[in-house]
């Protein structure tokens, strides 16, 4: 039988094959990595047996608190990125007319994607250090009488450090979802008498919600797992998830590290739940 051209040249079969390979090389290791949490092992030698010891250790060593602290920081960074990123995404999608300004902003939003994480952390450390330019300016202006210590090696420094690299992650998906809105809808909303803030609340935000959700995921997740920023800017005052994972795996406590990972997964699931409920509520037209 002759199949229709363009649909017959094995692309579907290739994708199926790729998906199978992906299952073996990615999904299987990820899943088995999670299962390690409830296995007994010594070093690299696995013994088949069920154990919840890793979870008991997590609670005993206070690592559950580490997860919550990190989640709080990642949430703070995500909210800041959303609040400041949404207007920029809206500007890019709707108002930006000048080719040059827009290209410049695009460039600014693309480059951070490909910067070396250590280079960024190192540069920021230099800026915020006691002898660095920020403190120099503050001292010079007589705003402070001695260098501000909490600028570096503090939660503040970690927040500043996480804000920059994750900011573009928030903007790209929101921008994409905004460009998918039919421009005529903006005119229609205005024509029907909606004020700019009503248009924003009643039309733009609901239609951009998938993009906002994607943006929050793309910001929250890297912020949650970042190891360089806490290491170079945090100064060890607060322990973050990445610190714990590294510490546990360095001491070959893979069950512990894996148990921590399952906690992170559970947390992500919990955080995503309200988003999907919200989306389903918005997708369904009000019935009664």
């Amino acid at each position: 039988m002759v199949r229709a051209p363009g649909r017959s040249d094995g692309a579907v079969a290739q994708t199926g094959l790729l998906a199978a390979g992906w299952g073996v090389a990615v999904l299987l290791p990820l899943l088995s990595g999670l299962l390690l949490a409830i296995m007994q092992h010594r070093g690299l030698h696995l013994r088949w047996g069920f154990s919840l010891a890793a979870y008991r250790d997590l609670v005993a060593t206070g690592r559950i608190g580490v997860v919550l602290d990190t989640a709080w920081m990642a949430a703070l960074v995500s909210v800041l990125c959303l609040v400041f990123g949404f207007p920029l995404a809206l500007w890019l999608a709707r108002d930006a007319r000048s080719g040059f300004a827009m290209q410049l902003v695009w460039l600014c939003l693309t480059v951070p994607f490909f910067l070396d994480p250590s280079a960024r952390g190192l540069a920021l450390r230099l800026m915020l250090s006691a002898g660095g330019p920020v403190n120099s300016v503050l001292l010079h202006l007589h705003l402070v009488h001695q260098p501000v210590r909490w600028l570096l090696f503090s939660d503040f420094a970690v927040m500043i450090g996480l804000l920059g690299p994750n900011f573009p992650n928030m903007i790209w998906p929101i921008y994409l979802s905004l460009t998918l809105i039919d421009p005529a809808l903006f005119d229609a909303s205005r024509d029907l008498g909606a004020s700019p803030s009503q248009t924003l609340r009643l039309m733009i935000l609901p239609l951009a919600l998938p993009g906002i959700l994607a943006g929050v995921i793309m910001t929250f997740i890297p912020a949650l797992g970042d190891n360089v920023v806490p290491d170079l800017l945090g100064g060890g005052r607060t322990e973050y998830i990445a610190d714990s994972v590294m510490a546990l795996s360095t001491s070959m406590n893979y069950a512990g590290a894996s148990a921590l990972a399952t906690v992170v997964f559970a947390l992500l699931g919990l955080l995503l739940l309200p988003f999907f409920t919200l989306r389903r509520m918005l997708a369904r037209p009000a019935t009664a």
């Binding site: 290791p29 797992g225 990445a242 590290a257 894996s258």
Partner: peptide
């Protein structure tokens, strides 16, 4: 998160 992926 990257570190978690790495470990797993």
């Amino acid at each position: 998160p990257g570190t978690v992926t790495g470990l797993m």
